[in-house]
Amino acid sequence: MTKQETLKLQAPFELSYDYKRSSGPIMSKFFEALSKKKILGTKNASGKVFVPAAEFDPNTNEALTEFVEVESTGIIESWSWVANPKPHHLIQSAFAFVLIKFNGADTSMLHMVSECAESDLAKGVKVKPVWSSDPKEMILDIKYFVLEK
């Protein structure tokens, strides 16, 4: 290290602020339903069901206002195994981030699958939710998914 480099100053710069989120009429209903152990999607004019509920159809641009309840079980569409979770992960034993397509839905949702081995995971494997005992109208009202055996 040259002398010039050692003289360069450094100081901590902490930045934090508690933002508020207004989730709007569509996502609010989705999260409310989660707290009641229900999975809601929105349906477009041609019957395509978006789960999680979407406010706007990305292809037709229509505003989606019709809700449909889908089954809380679904299949794994894709996954990424986390063998050694870091402290910031929500699950501290090996788990997978997964895209889950609920039965009755046409799109998939990002969540986690736990209590399984990496070798259990495959496209099409059936999963079911483990509900939180303390729902807060948030996505973690589902703690994670487990294999439906």
Binding site: P25, I26, E55
Partner: peptide, 16 residues
């Protein structure tokens, strides 16, 4: 405070 809409909903309202 437009707490009745999301950011997406707010933007879309002007677009519509």
């Amino acid at each position: 405070k437009r707490r009745d809409v999301s950011i997406a909903g707010l933007v879309r309202e002007a677009i519509d």
